[in-house]
């Protein structure tokens, strides 16, 4: 999907980010984090704008962005569901919860966002809440000791919500 051009408001925002980090050593990650939080993902048009403005190679930004799991290169769904795949969650059956959500959200093979942009399912290594494993984070709210039943109820709520 080709990206649309930057709007004026977006340009203003990006210029603000550039100004904030201008001349600061080692700010590439911080700039990318700002892009991720402003756009919901690391948008190509935004990276290109910022790199040019800061007079740094675009490839430098992409090199760093692709290294870290936190950065996404495609727009994400309106609901973000994070499944913890840490060891404790794994041995307490997180795989089954994940399989269940892949089916419920109708995620296409190899994709983490549903075609209608309602749901993004992401797996993370460990959210550090292992004593209440398995853990699912639904739109930033942590749910512990998750079961298929409880999860299905939450999904129903999300689906009913829009």
């Amino acid at each position: 999907m080709p990206e649309t051009a930057l709007t004026e408001a977006e340009i203003e925002k990006l210029e603000g980010i550039c100004a904030k980090y201008a001349g600061q050593k080692g700010s590439v990650i911080a700039v990318l984090q700002e892009l991720e939080s402003s756009f919901g993902y690391v948008a190509e048009k935004a990276v290109n704008f910022v790199a040019d403005k800061m007079e740094m190679p675009r490839s430098h930004f992409y090199g760093v962005a692709t290294f870290y799991a936190q950065f996404h290169f495609k727009p994400r769904g309106r609901n973000i569901i994070t499944a913890c795949s840490g060891t404790a969650c794994h041995v307490k059956g997180s795989d089954r919860l994940i399989d269940n959500m892949v089916r419920e959200f109708g995620l296409p093979e190899g994709e983490d966002t549903s075609a209608d942009m309602r749901f993004t399912l992401e797996k993370v290594n460990c959210v550090g809440a292992c004593s209440i494993a398995p853990v699912i984070i639904i739109n930033k709210e942590v749910h512990g000791k998750m079961t298929t039943d409880k999860l299905n109820k939450e999904i129903k709520k999300l689906k009913g919500g829009q």
Binding site: T87, A88, G128
Partner: peptide, 11 residues
Amino acid sequence: DEGDPGAFMDR
């Protein structure tokens, strides 16, 4: 940067 899955003492 507590990265080990299954560890949360630093947090």
